Simulated scan of single mutants.
Amino acid sequence: MKVTLLGTGTSQGVPVIGCSCNICKSLDFRDKRFRSSIHIEVNGVSLVIDTGPDFRMQMLRADIQKVDAVLLTHEHKDHTAGLDDIRPFNFKQKKDMPVFGRYQVLEQIKREFAYIFSGNRYPGVPQVEAVEIDTNPFVVSKIQIIPIPVMHYKLPVLGFRIKDFTYITDANFISDESLKLIEGTDILVLNALQKDSHISHFTLDEAISMAQKIGARQTYFTHISHRMGLHAEVDQELPAGISLGYDGLEISLP
């Protein structure tokens, strides 16, 4: 099983054109982040979690040639806005793309991408099969996926666990029931927005505390704001077994 962090950034605190702060001037590639998304390859099955505005460039940069299904964590635009760019995979694979999401997530993309789901579709539009999921485990091409319900302030969001890997983005609360679903995870990817307090995201200290509570062998932080600071400096502040993620990071699991 191989996991690739396609993007570890966020629209929160994205620098404006002409910004001359240390982050924008940094020559460290780890400080250059697309919006949060990952690619998982397991037993020959290729899965993508979230299709944000940078989806096309993420696919090209990672040279991903096949996608069997898309999983959506929630309906915010920084996680869904690139859905149109699944069409090259339609053309190449000659089939509809299954897109898995909760009812409210699918309803949102049906409104925002009405032309995809229209009864009289224009030739060449993306071919999408919307597959509704809830908090029960489900299967994609014989791969079992366990949804992890978390809260993004008042918005329900799903993390996902596959084997001993768990991915959670856009959260600031994880219930005891959800923690039981994560128990035994070997590799955890968890959101950590910034050092300052935030209404709907874990701060760096909160993410560290949650990671230590979960107790994975290795935790990588994602959904990292421009306000977090330089990767090289922040990473040195973190406890053993916890690191900042970065775009392009590849993680291998049994």
Rank of each mutant, 00 (worst) to 15 (best):
Y220A: 14
N172A: 05
Q212S: 08
S200R: 06
I168N: 06
L244G: 01
I214T: 07
P156R: 14
I148L: 15
A232H: 14
P239N: 09
K142W: 09
G241S: 10
F165S: 07
H152I: 06
G245V: 06
Q144P: 09
Y153V: 06
K142G: 11
D176T: 08
I168K: 02
P149L: 10
V234A: 10
D205H: 12
A192D: 04
A211P: 01
H223V: 14
I208H: 07
T222W: 02
I145H: 04
D235V: 05
S200E: 05
M228P: 10
L179D: 04
I214C: 06
R161M: 01
V234T: 15
H198R: 03
A171V: 12
D196R: 09
G159H: 03
S225E: 12
F165N: 02
K142D: 15
G229D: 13
S197R: 12
M210N: 03
S243Q: 11
L244A: 01
A216K: 02
E237D: 14
Y167R: 01
S243C: 05
P156I: 13
I224W: 04
P239M: 09
G229E: 15
I182N: 07
I145S: 06
L158F: 00
S178Q: 12
Q218T: 05
P149D: 03
H226D: 13
G245Y: 06
E237N: 13
I187F: 10
G241H: 01
E237H: 11
F173I: 10
E183K: 14
L230K: 10
H231K: 10
I143K: 08
I199Q: 04
M210D: 07
P147Y: 10
V150W: 00
R217V: 12
I148K: 03
T166L: 01
S178K: 12
A216W: 02
A171P: 05
I214W: 02
T166W: 01
D235E: 08
R161W: 00
K163C: 12
E233M: 13
P149H: 00
T219D: 01
T203Q: 00
K180M: 07
K195I: 01
E233V: 15
D186N: 12
I168E: 06
T222C: 14
I214A: 02
L193G: 00
Q144D: 14
V150I: 11
L204P: 02
V189F: 07
K180F: 07
L181N: 10
L179S: 04
H223E: 15
M210Q: 07
I162Q: 03
H201I: 08
I146S: 05
G229V: 11
L238P: 03
L238D: 07
V150Y: 03
P156D: 14
D205I: 15
H198V: 10
R217N: 09
G215S: 08
I145E: 10
Y167G: 12
K180Y: 03
M228G: 09
I146Y: 05
L188W: 07
N172V: 00
L190Q: 01
Q218R: 04
G245F: 03
L193V: 07
G184T: 03
D176A: 03
N172D: 10
Y167P: 08
I148V: 11
S225M: 11
P239V: 09
E206V: 02
A207N: 10
L238C: 08
